[in-house]
């Protein structure tokens, strides 16, 4: 998994609460056999004026000029800021895959839905919980200057604004360690490869039939 240390970027302001995973990536895309390639379908219903499916080339569709993701001023943002309860609804991991594939490294919101929150850590995306007034400050900053650079500093557990303000955030130390070191759960488990091998050889003595086929 890609490590997450410090990300400095413009911010995409998605001024909505209860953004559910079906809005993040609608169900017709779950038939995909890939975990990449969902970026063009991120927020599909809001982003395009015409309906889409896996076999329609997104480049041929009509973007909704009103939707913030289509605003040129915000293009290239790696940080998404939104309101309460981001990522609610179905447990689909595709929602995080879509955000990641689009290029978002961090999502800032006052609160997140549980499963989405833990899926983020499995995929190297950092969910940052800030207080509602701090989130508001970021919305205000971006409204005043779409080019304003915000820094998400994971080692310091801080979100820094260009005017010098900085907001601290909490994170489970275990999650932080994995993200900073780029360890996905698999990478972390593989650090215990010796223990897995030791278990296997002991078990092979005890219950050899488990290893026969």
């Amino acid at each position: 998994m890609r490590a997450f240390n410090v990300v400095a970027s413009k911010v995409m302001p998605l001024d909505r609460s209860n953004v559910d995973t079906d809005a993040i990536i609608p169900k017709q895309y779950l038939k995909s056999i890939r975990r990449t390639g969902f970026g063009p379908f991120l927020f599909d219903d809001w982003r395009y004026l015409d309906p889409g499916t896996l076999d329609i080339d997104p480049a041929t569709r009509r973007p909704n000029p009103e939707f913030v993701l289509n605003a040129p001023a915000h293009a290239g943002s790696q940080i998404l800021v939104a309101r309460d309860n981001f990522g609610c609804g179905s447990s689909r991991e595709h929602a995080v895959w879509a955000l990641d594939d689009y290029g978002f490294r961090a999502v800032i919101a006052p609160s997140f839905a549980d499963i989405f929150f833990s899926n983020c850590f499995k995929n190297g995306v950092l969910p940052v919980v800030l207080k509602a007034d701090e989130v508001q400050a970021i919305f205000d900053l971006v409204a005043a200057d779409a080019q304003a650079q915000v820094t998400v500093d994971l080692p310091a557990q801080q979100v820094q604004l260009p005017d010098g303000r900085s907001f601290g955030f909490e994170i489970n130390p275990h999650h932080k360690h994995n993200l900073v070191n780029g360890l996905d759960e698999i990478g972390l488990t593989l650090q215990q490869a010796d223990k897995i091998k030791a278990y296997e050889s002991r078990r092979q003595q005890e219950a050899p039939w488990l290893f026969a086929n």
């Binding site: 991991e93 499995k122 698999i186 488990t189 593989l190 490869a193 897995i196």
Partner: peptide, 16 residues
């Protein structure tokens, strides 16, 4: 199990 865990089981023969 979910898809990340399918990958975890494939890669490590274990789950947390």
């Amino acid at each position: 199990i979910g898809t990340s865990e399918v990958e975890h089981a494939l890669a490590t023969q274990t789950l947390v």
